[in-house]
Write a protein that binds this DNA or RNA. Structure first.
Length: 475
RNA sequence: GCGCCCUUCGUCUAGCGGUCUAGGACGUUGCCCUUUCACGGCAAAAACACGGGUUCGAGUCCCGUAGGGCGCGCCA
């Protein structure tokens, strides 16, 4: 039997980080077993489903590098089939019409809560003659759930979980307008789509019990369930927009690489001994359901950043330039850049990338650290650079002339000149290099100074130096 | 309130009755390397929620307590 997993988001918002991890787990499990991962959009809530959300989810998955097999299934398009299944249950006496009105149900819940009883539907139409149906009320179809015994879910992550049937009420299968509820639709679709493994957040654990009852009533096999713990915010509370509950596209904007985010996400809940870094191939080889823990994890940006830095350092230089270029539509304007890099700048970026990528944790930092490559003269020095240059300006006297004389403008050639200069004025190299760096890059931090000068070229280097040295120090 | 789930360093986790003087990673601190910052290397501080059992022996099994989470819709 081939493994079939599915990712089934509801299009009421973007693809958040927890959904991204669920998709990743489904994807990995399918890949691991040479199976398929299907994508189903759970849009039976017509009020809240939007096309924008569908697009955001699809984009998010693509950006994360998680592809799905076959066409996207839109759940609502299968409503007729859902209805048919509900009616078949009705015909077999495993479901019944319920004429209770929303107000009635609301009262029922309130009373129950007030009296300290569990708030469940009381089954008032379960055995009642439909002939007693009130005028003008369109009924829903409810499942005639067992009232005795227990419902068991053998979960690949949670283990054996047992509910007493008396604690579970008769859920609605078909709404009064004839549309299916989520509970029915999932069961029918998973069955019809031959889904073998349902991997989802453990907020669905209770649903698993109710869905199991539907499967049983239908006489269908229950797929293997795997309910993975949720991801919490850094404070342990539910994920909110303030911390981790951003759409995955927000992580893209923040400058994270999809491979880094995947690696981070997979280790939230799943582990493989002491291994922290996984290539995609390694993940596919190692991933399993039994190594998923049962306790919730907190989202930690610091670790994500570390991982991202790791992947950036490893990445190909041209790839990184493409990646930051991809951020330009969002970040370019405020940095005086267009939507793409001019070819000349692109070349410089690639050339400088080995030194740049060592020092950045995100693509945004990478772009900013490359400031000296695209800055317009005269440079605007940041605070640290200003004070460095202020202190060391005197030690730069005579440097421009010596540099102007250089014929071999290479990192090594330039380094020799600067080292000589430092020696000549009795200063340590750092005492000369730092103010020089400030003047040339506008920052206190940059890649190796001589590499910077080499990439900048002789003319630009000298011009920038003159800009800064001819200016009287700011009072 | 009822049901279900969870609880090892600040965080992610290893641990599947003895090898745990509890390991790794991120973060933190110190040192080294060094033209800066990073990277890298070395070192340090840092955890089995609590209480009962079971057992020769418990982080590991059982039961409570406390704390946290999820669910309890004609939402998904």
């Amino acid at each position: 039997m081939t493994v079939v997993t599915r990712f089934a988001p509801s299009p009421t918002g973007f693809l958040h980080i927890g959904g991204g991890r669920t998709a990743l787990f489904n994807w990995l499990y399918a890949k691991r077993h040479g199976g398929k991962m299907l994508l189903r959009i759970e849009d039976t809530d017509r009020e809240r489903s939007t096309d924008a959300a569908i697009e955001a989810i699809l984009d998010g998955l693509k950006w994360l590098g998680l592809d799905w097999d076959g066409d996207v299934v839109y759940q609502f398009s299968r409503a007729a089939r859902h209805k048919e299944v509900a009616e078949s249950l009705l015909a077999e006496g495993r479901a019944y019409y319920c004429y209770a009105t929303p107000q009635e149900l609301e009262e029922m819940r309130e009373t129950a809560r007030r009296e300290g009883r569990p708030s469940r539907y009381d089954g008032r139409w379960r055995d009642r003659d439909p002939a007693e149906a009130p005028e003008g009320v369109k009924p829903v179809i409810r499942l005639k759930a067992p009232t005795e015994g227990e419902t068991v879910v053998e979960d690949a992550v949670q283990g054996r979980v047992v509910w007493q049937n008396k604690d579970l009420d008769d859920l609605v299968l078909l709404r009064s307008d004839g549309t299916p509820t989520y509970m029915l639709a999932v069961v029918v679709d998973d069955h019809d789509m031959d889904v073998t493994h349902v991997i989802r957040g453990d907020d669905h654990l209770t649903n698993a019990a109710r869905q199991t009852q539907i499967y049983k009533a239908l006489g269908w096999d229950v797929p293997q369930m795997a309910h993975v713990p949720l991801i919490h915010g850094p404070d342990g509370a539910k994920l909110s927009k303030r911390h981790g509950a951003l759409g995955v596209e927000a992580y893209r904007s923040l400058g994270y690489l999809p491979e880094a985010l995947r690696n981070y996400l997979v280790r939230l809940g799943w582990s493989h001994g002491d291994q922290e870094i996984f290539s995609t191939e390694e993940l596919i080889q190692a991933f399993d359901l039994s190594s998923i823990g049962r306790s919730p994890a907190r989202f930690d940006f610091a670790k994500l950043e570390n991982l991202n830095g790791h992947y950036m350092r490893q990445a190909d230089d041209a790839y990184l330039v493409e990646a930051i270029e991809g951020l330009l539509p969002e970040l370019g304007d405020e940095r005086g850049l267009g939507r793409t890099f001019p070819p000349a700048l692109k070349q410089k970026l690639v050339a400088a990338m080995p030194g740049l990528k060592e020092r950045a944790k995100t693509l945004v930092e990478l772009l900013d650290s490359a400031y000296y490559l695209y800055a317009q003269r005269p440079l605007k020095l940041d605070e640290k650079a200003q004070s460095l240059l202020g202190d060391g300006r005197a030690r730069l006297d005579g440097i421009p002339a010596k540099l102007r004389a250089v014929t071999d403008w290479s990192a090594a050639g330039v380094e020799a000149v600067v080292r000589e200069h430092a020696e000549a004025i009795g200063a340590k190299l750092g005492q000369v290099a730092q103010p020089l760096r400030a003047a040339l890059t506008g920052r206190a931090t940059s890649p190796g100074l001589f590499d910077v000068m080499a990439v900048l070229g002789k003319d630009e280097t000298l011009s920038r130096l003159e800009d800064q040295l001819s200016n009287a120090p700011a009072a």
